[in-house]
Design a protein around this nucleic acid. Sequence first.
RNA 1: GCCCGGGUGGCGAAAUCGGUAUACGCAAGGGACUUAAAAUCCCUUGGGAGCAAUCCCAUGCGGGUUCGAAUCCCGCCCCGGGCACCA
Length: 690
Amino acid sequence: MIDWDHEVQTIDPAYYKWTQWIFLKLFEAGLAEKKLAPVNWCPECKTVLANEQVIDGFCERHPDVQVHHRFLEQWFFTITKYTERLLENLQTVDWSESTKLMQTNWIGRSEGAELVFTPPSGEPIRVFTTRPDTVFGATWVVLAPEHPMVDQVTTAEYWGDVNEYRRQAAEMDLVSRRVGGREKTGVFTGSYARNPATDEAVPIWVADYVLMEYGTGAIMAVPAHDERDFEFATQFDLPIVQVVKPTDGEASTNGASVLPFASWDGVMMNSGQFDGVPCRKAVHAITDWLHEKQLGSRRVQYRLHDWCISRQRYWGPPIPIIYCDDCGTVPVPEHDLPVELPELQDFRPDESGTSPLARLEEWYRVQCPKCGKLGRRETDVSDTFLDSAWYYLRYPSTDYNDRAFDTELTERWLPVSQYIGGNEHAVLHLMYSRFVTMALHDLGLTKFEEPFTRFRAHGTIVKDGAKMSKSRGNVVVPDAYIAKWGADTFRMYLMFLGPYQEGGDFREEGIAGIRRFLDKVWVVVDSVDTSGGQSADPAITRKLHQTIRKLTQDMEELRYNTAIAALMEYLNVVRRSDIVPASVLEPLIVLLAPLAPHLAEQCWERLGHDGSVFDTSWPIYDETLAREEEIELVVQVNGRVRARLTVARDIAEREAIEQALQNEAVQKHLGGNTPRKTIYVPGRLVNLVG
RNA sequence: GCCCGGGUGGCGAAAUCGGUAUACGCAAGGGACUUAAAAUCCCUUGGGAGCAAUCCCAUGCGGGUUCGAAUCCCGCCCCGGGCACCA
């Protein structure tokens, strides 16, 4: 039941006051930083976006609009400080496996090593690799175009080439830059660095297939054992040295045709004292060896980046920060919250990279809360995902205006015991909420660190093979169906369509079946025997308890389709009976209530009850009453069904086999032979093997 | 390319632990009621052979393990989703 007294609206200053408060808490905890970084810019939204809001290089809200790179100073939440916990805690929560997997992949944990390649002069170049075992085959080094060391290593002779290449890379937008399989490009810097394993000088290149945002922004290239490096070697005629030979490969020694060989199933070669060692062992042996020489160390790398929360749009809670020439970055004092959104004539965003609020000088010019000198408000607002990252904490505490969430109420109601949503939020809302909750937990503000104990991802109902969207024009509007069939029918039909977590294509073919079922319920309720004198047929009672058991289990596991099928079966049994006592019908109505609430409520009233059906308790099944006394025992000969016997439920093995052997059809198929082997599965079958 | 999920009647789908494949519903066909139609009720319905009892075949394709496979293993094909030059 929905309690409208506990409604929240994230655009209400009474709500976003606390969103800003949460920002301040995270800021105090050192989890909010403003930094200059390459960020995703949507030219349609005219704002930056978080990585999680960029889908295949396109804007989440504008699927036709490509996202660009911009270097801007933005506020970030350092979610990466929680990477390990976000990963580890996944094992403690009861969530859909698909959702957990998506988060795991998004966090993208990789074990490997950081190795040092030393140029003759200047700083060493640090590279991250997951294959330190292949370091003997590293024949050059690549820096990302944005790598700060490019300037130092580029020689005068190559200065022009390198600069031109960097200029082109900077101009390229995210999409064309990141397409895998694109022809490799790059330039030589003129310098060399020493391979820490071979001690040989290898050339230093700059190429855009290396990304500054991942690892150290530099790699060692091992063309024999990495597809991309192999491609680059082919393109620029660079040396290829095989250092791993396949364990079970046929063409293991005469190399070229099987390269690049990127598998872990191999042993080392051309690797000095490590020759013959399997890759998986060599990884550690070589890393440790380089560690002793102080040229490398083990390292774990993640794909997850910090959460960019700055937005240059109007709608959103202004980030509660004031910049002062003397005091620097000053948080707005709690008692000054909320920082309200001012009225603005034209609130549309523009290309400037600053928020519409930056046009309103009388708003952003304020006194510094510390020294009183004239300062300037932050004009960016926060990501709307921050609003939703904590809303569940607000629900129980909406009556309190002096605190975001009340300790006692929070303890009583939270964490959320069952949450249902779509997998499109797996790496957005669900990840952000987990992070915010962990941060609040570490600040001592909540007792739990996971917001949602149990989460189930619903499937997507698609139409004509595609996700419903206004632009495609394939949206199913429920209103028409509700008008024609009724809300209960439509609701129940959607549940009956198929497994809840799978979704499927929307068709209306079967909807009449649900309506017929509900009509039959109504008719049966009308014909119920209310005299109280009739006792129920034992067969119906048995079916009733089986149905209660099935519903109890199915509802808990969100298996609505089979729950409904079970109710239909039960109704079919009830309808075959001439007399229907209230005792067999009332539980049906209670079981139906969560599926067809309106109809159930009316039936309940019609059965002579004053209160709501939702105030009655869920029926409890009796295992003894649900038990079948007689069962059908299948008799197989050599695994094929040849007879079915009706026997007592608890028939002894010896007796069952005895009866099976006496069966005529069974004897025929045995052909007069005695079975060599008999298999007995209690309550199910006898298999005679001849 | 890598990682998940799925493929079962004409259709949506069941079979939850390796043990009666096709529950439940839709659609279709036949019948009852009706002057007629709708609605409702009853019956039939995986494919094939047969008067029948019954038998054979069938869970995307090809192999395997097992007394027994939709379910487990190996190799493919197709559909949906996620990630993607992440070193």
